[in-house]
């Protein structure tokens, strides 16, 4: 009976903890704005196929580069496609790919970082040198090379993005592990004869989780930025898939007389990136993690 109570209380406190974090995040104006923008985009990504007024790939030469009107809210592009339809659909691919990409980055970067922080010594030295080497190659060069040789399918993009954005997490996870490794509970777990795996799972992960999650949230917005840059350069998703980066690069050449077709995707992409950024910042503040002095890596 008593045990039961304790169990229930723990469960409740977990749920309470999550809602408390969300409330703290939303209580700041910037956090509230960020969360609202992010939620808006996620909902839009789910419902946009059902509310899109036109077919996103229907080409109509008679409707080329129409200015915004009651019929075509954001005008039409150079192939006569409705810009409003393409804009509300334009975030789906980017959101999906970068979300799963960040999960992969979190997993491998976090686990490798914790492992290196725990074992230390030669293994740590070697792994960190390799991570350093990868950090010093501009991500865009490596990504472009991989994509140009392996193609731009989702199965290539998600793991590749996940890999290249995870190497920065290795360092954060390793540093966070170093902070807890000398604490008494780790020493006593070792004295009890726990295995490395058990120590990582039961002692370290609960203590470094927050720092890694915050880093992952931040990396989500960077990955979105990177992914849309790839699309913009023509190395991301392939046409006619509606994607903001691709739409901006297509409409850019025509913007001297059809600025609407470039403004709409710009607003879409910028608002999503700012939304994720503000949310990640608020998340960090709600968890009491200061990442303001860190540079992007």
């Amino acid at each position: 009976m008593k045990l039961d109570n304790i169990y229930q209380e723990e469960k409740k406190s977990n749920f309470a903890k999550v809602s408390e974090i969300i409330i703290t995040m939303a209580s700041r104006p910037s956090g509230f704005i960020g969360l609202s923008i992010l939620i808006f985009h996620v909902i839009l990504a789910f419902i946009s196929p059902y509310i899109a007024p036109y077919d996103f790939k229907a080409i109509n030469p008679t409707l080329m580069l129409q200015a915004p009107s009651a019929e075509y809210w954001f005008g039409t592009d150079d192939l006569g496609r409705d810009v409003f339809t393409r804009t509300i659909l334009g975030g789906r691919t980017a959101l999906t790919i970068t979300f799963f990409g960040s999960l992969i980055a979190l997993l491998w970067g976090g686990l490798l970082g914790i492992f290196c922080g725990l074992v230390g010594g030669k293994t740590d030295d070697i792994v960190m040198r390799i991570v350093d080497a990868f950090l010093s190659i501009p991500w865009i060069l490596a990504m472009l090379l991989i994509v140009s040789l392996l193609g731009t399918s989702t199965e290539v993009l998600i793991p590749a993005l996940g890999f290249f954005y995870g190497k920065g997490i290795v360092r954060v996870a390793r540093a966070a592990t170093h902070d807890v490794i000398a604490k008494d509970f780790i020493v006593s777990a070792r004295a009890r004869g726990h295995s490395n795996f058990s120590i990582i799972w039961n002692e370290i992960i609960p203590n470094v989780r927050d720092a890694i999650l915050v880093e992952g949230a931040m990396r989500w917005s960077w990955m979105l930025l990177g992914f849309s840059s790839l699309s913009f350069l023509g190395f991301g998703v392939s046409p006619p898939t509606p994607d903001w980066g691709l739409m901006i690069s297509n409409a850019r050449g025509l913007m001297s007389f059809a600025y609407w077709s470039v403004i709409a995707p710009i607003v879409g992409l910028s608002s999503l990136i700012i939304g994720i950024n503000l949310t990640a910042d608020a998340f960090a503040k709600a968890l009491g993690i200061d990442r303001s002095t860190k540079a992007p890596v």
Binding site: S221, L225, S228, S229, F232, G245, I248, S249, R252, M255, S256, Y259, V262, I266, L269, S270, I273, I274, N277, L278
Partner: peptide
């Protein structure tokens, strides 16, 4: 500054061209 550092390079560059050059 938050706007300037979060918005992708290609967007700020495109907007600069649109506003200042065009």
């Amino acid at each position: 500054t938050i706007f300037a550092m979060t918005i992708p390079e290609f967007i700020s560059a495109t907007l600069l061209i649109l506003i200042i050059a065009i």
